Amino acid sequence: KKKIKIYIENENGEKKTIEIEVEGDIDEIAKELAKKYNVKIVKIEP
Protein backbone atom coordinates (compact mmCIF):
# COMPACT_ATOMS: atom_id res chain seq x y z
CA LYS A 1 0.00 0.00 0.00
CA LYS A 2 1.09 3.51 -0.82
CA LYS A 3 0.03 6.71 0.86
CA ILE A 4 -0.72 9.41 -1.69
CA LYS A 5 -2.07 12.94 -1.68
CA ILE A 6 -4.70 13.93 -4.20
CA TYR A 7 -5.32 17.62 -4.77
CA ILE A 8 -8.86 18.22 -6.02
CA GLU A 9 -11.05 21.13 -7.02
CA ASN A 10 -14.84 21.03 -6.91
CA GLU A 11 -17.25 22.83 -9.23
CA ASN A 12 -17.22 25.89 -6.92
CA GLY A 13 -13.46 26.21 -7.34
CA GLU A 14 -12.78 25.07 -3.78
CA LYS A 15 -9.50 23.23 -3.47
CA LYS A 16 -8.99 20.32 -1.10
CA THR A 17 -6.33 17.74 -0.39
CA ILE A 18 -7.21 14.13 0.27
CA GLU A 19 -4.66 11.81 1.80
CA ILE A 20 -5.39 8.13 1.24
CA GLU A 21 -3.68 4.78 1.18
CA VAL A 22 -4.05 2.98 -2.11
CA GLU A 23 -3.23 -0.31 -3.66
CA GLY A 24 -3.00 -0.75 -7.41
CA ASP A 25 -3.23 1.78 -10.21
CA ILE A 26 -3.20 5.27 -8.70
CA ASP A 27 -4.49 6.94 -11.88
CA GLU A 28 -7.45 4.58 -12.09
CA ILE A 29 -8.32 5.15 -8.44
CA ALA A 30 -8.05 8.92 -8.86
CA LYS A 31 -10.33 8.83 -11.91
CA GLU A 32 -12.91 6.82 -9.99
CA LEU A 33 -12.79 9.30 -7.10
CA ALA A 34 -13.13 12.24 -9.48
CA LYS A 35 -16.17 10.68 -11.12
CA LYS A 36 -17.76 9.62 -7.85
CA TYR A 37 -17.43 13.01 -6.18
CA ASN A 38 -17.70 15.12 -9.33
CA VAL A 39 -14.39 16.92 -8.78
CA LYS A 40 -11.36 17.77 -10.88
CA ILE A 41 -8.02 16.22 -10.01
CA VAL A 42 -5.42 18.96 -9.82
CA LYS A 43 -2.38 16.92 -8.84
CA ILE A 44 -1.41 13.56 -7.41
CA GLU A 45 1.64 13.13 -5.22
CA PRO A 46 3.01 9.69 -4.46
Rank of each mutant, 00 (worst) to 15 (best):
K40W: 06
A34M: 12
K40F: 11
E32Y: 13
V42K: 05
K40I: 14
I29C: 09
G24K: 03
K31N: 09
I26C: 04
D27R: 09
I6C: 03
I20M: 14
I8C: 14
K15F: 14
V39I: 13
E21K: 03
I41E: 02
E45A: 04
V22T: 11
E14G: 06
L33N: 00
K15S: 12
E32I: 10
K2A: 10
K16S: 15
P46L: 15
I6S: 00
E11R: 08
L33S: 00
I4E: 00
K15A: 10
G24V: 03
E32P: 00
Y37D: 02
I18H: 02
E28C: 08
I20G: 00
G24A: 04
I29E: 04
K31G: 07
L33P: 00
K2R: 13
G24C: 06
E45T: 07
E45S: 04
I4C: 06
P46E: 15
I18M: 09
E23L: 09
E21P: 01
I4W: 15
K36E: 06
A30W: 07
K3D: 01
E9W: 04
V22N: 05
I6L: 09
E45I: 09
D25L: 05
K5F: 11
K36F: 08
E32H: 10
T17S: 07
N38Y: 04
I29D: 01
E11I: 11
D25H: 05
I6Q: 00
K31E: 09
E11M: 12
K40C: 11
N38V: 03
T17D: 03
K2D: 06
I20L: 14
E14I: 08
N12S: 12
Y37H: 08
N38H: 09
N10F: 15
N12K: 13
E19P: 00
N10M: 15
E9N: 02
L33G: 00
E32M: 12
K36W: 08
N38I: 01
L33D: 00
K5H: 06
V22R: 03
V42Y: 05
A34T: 06
D27K: 10
L33R: 00
I8Q: 00
E21Y: 13
E28Y: 10
K2L: 14
I44C: 03
K31H: 09
Y37K: 02
Y7V: 12
K43G: 12
I6G: 00
I6T: 00
N10E: 10
E28H: 10
E32N: 10
A34G: 05
I18F: 11
E11Q: 14
A30P: 01
V42T: 06
N12M: 12
E45K: 02
K2C: 06
I8P: 00
T17C: 12
E32A: 12
K3P: 10
V22W: 12
Y37F: 10
K36D: 03
Y7S: 06
V39Q: 03
I44H: 02
A34E: 12
E23Q: 09
T17F: 09
N10D: 14
K31I: 08
K36N: 06
I4Y: 15
P46S: 14
I6V: 10
E19N: 04
A30N: 02
E19R: 03
G13P: 00
E11C: 13
A30F: 11
N38W: 03
V39Y: 13
K16F: 15
I26D: 03
K43L: 11
P46W: 15
E23V: 13
I44F: 07
I44V: 08
K40S: 10
E45W: 09
P46V: 15
I6F: 15
I20Q: 02
L33T: 02
K43I: 11
P46K: 06
N12T: 09
A34I: 08
E28V: 11
K1F: 12
P46Q: 14
V42C: 07
D27I: 10
I26K: 01
E14V: 12
V22D: 06
I8H: 01
N12E: 09
P46M: 15
I44S: 01
I29L: 11
K36G: 01
E19V: 10
G13Q: 03
I44E: 02
G24E: 03
D27S: 09
K5V: 13
K16E: 12
N12L: 13
E9L: 09
I4G: 02
Y7R: 04
E28T: 11
G24I: 02
E23Y: 13
V42W: 07
A30M: 15
T17K: 04
E45M: 05
K5C: 12
K43M: 11
D25R: 04
V42A: 03
I41G: 01
N10I: 07
K1Y: 10
E9D: 03
Y37M: 12
K1S: 11
I41T: 02
E11D: 09
V22A: 12
D25I: 04
V22E: 06
I18C: 07
E11V: 11
K2Q: 12
G24S: 05
I8Y: 15
G13W: 02
V42R: 01
L33M: 06
D25Q: 04
